[in-house]
């Protein structure tokens, strides 16, 4: 299709078909979820599930490009659905205006191929990771604080998961530049697309980005032997 002509040589016809057939669940439509959803829709991912229980607030608009003034106090899922629906009408969109927890995960996660975690708190990250491991789904994790961010590719049983770190519900520093969330969210979408099209070479599973120094580093993380994700 002409819409996808400019990346056709990079992923091939088989890659485009894989994207069209793919079902990706994006958890969170904020600073990370906005660029992730735009990039996945632009690439032609066939079905996008969108989870968010928040409403749009004015303080979101320094970074959350899915939303705008017209949607203040409206559910973010409504705003996301309208924005992405206009951007690429060929994509099937399913929205869930609820908090992502174990109950919702049980209902919806089995119908998706891959999860992208774009949330802003450790509790939901831990919940998303647990269901990725439980349902054996690849999870693209991403986070940001201040001038630093990371992306982690979680393939249960193969790469380290988020629980391998033993993270607890830590305090979060919430200052962030929208341009930085754009980089991490797009990187999450890129790694998701690489997984779906078979481009990922398997040599790394963690990317650290330091925006102040303008540096990006990567490494492969082996799972913690004591974590339940290791089969």
């Amino acid at each position: 299709m002409e819409r996808y002509a400019r990346h056709q040589e990079l992923i091939g016809a088989a890659g485009q078909t894989a994207l069209a057939k793919a079902r990706v669940l994006v958890i969170g439509t904020g600073g990370l979820g906005s660029p992730t959803l735009f990039a996945l829709a632009a690439a032609g991912v066939g079905t996008l599930g969108i989870v968010d229980d928040d409403v749009v607030e004015i303080s979101n608009l320094n970074r959350q490009l899915l939303h705008s003034d017209a949607f203040i106090n409206q559910p973010k899922t409504d705003s996301a659905k309208q924005t992405i629906g206009r951007f690429n009408p060929d994509i099937q969109l399913k929205t869930y205006s609820q908090r992502f927890d174990a109950d919702l995960a049980e209902q919806i996660v089995p119908e998706y191929d891959m999860l992208v975690d774009c949330v802003d708190n450790y509790a939901t990250r831990i919940a998303a990771n647990a269901c990725a491991v439980k349902y054996n789904k690849t999870l693209i994790e991403g986070g940001i604080e201040g001038m630093s961010g990371f992306v982690q590719i979680v393939i249960p049983g193969k790469t380290a998961c988020f629980n391998c770190f033993g993270v607890e519900d830590n305090e979060i520093y919430r200052q962030v530049l929208g341009a930085s969330t754009g980089i991490i969210g797009n990187l999450q979408a890129l790694e998701c697309i690489k997984q779906l099209t078979g481009i990922w070479d398997g040599s790394y599973s963690y990317i650290a980005v330091d925006f102040r120094q303008c540096s990006m580093e990567r490494m492969f993380l082996e799972p913690n032997d004591d974590c339940g994700c290791k089969k």
Binding site: G28, G30, G31, L32, G33, C118, V119, D120, N121, Y122, R125, G142, G143, I144, E145, G146, S148, G149, F150, F165, V167, N170, I172, Y173, R174, V176, T181, Y206, A208, M219
Partner: peptide, 9 residues
């Protein structure tokens, strides 16, 4: 190796 831990979005 020490990795940073960041959780906002």
């Amino acid at each position: 190796k020490f990795l940073m831990l960041v959780g906002a979005g």
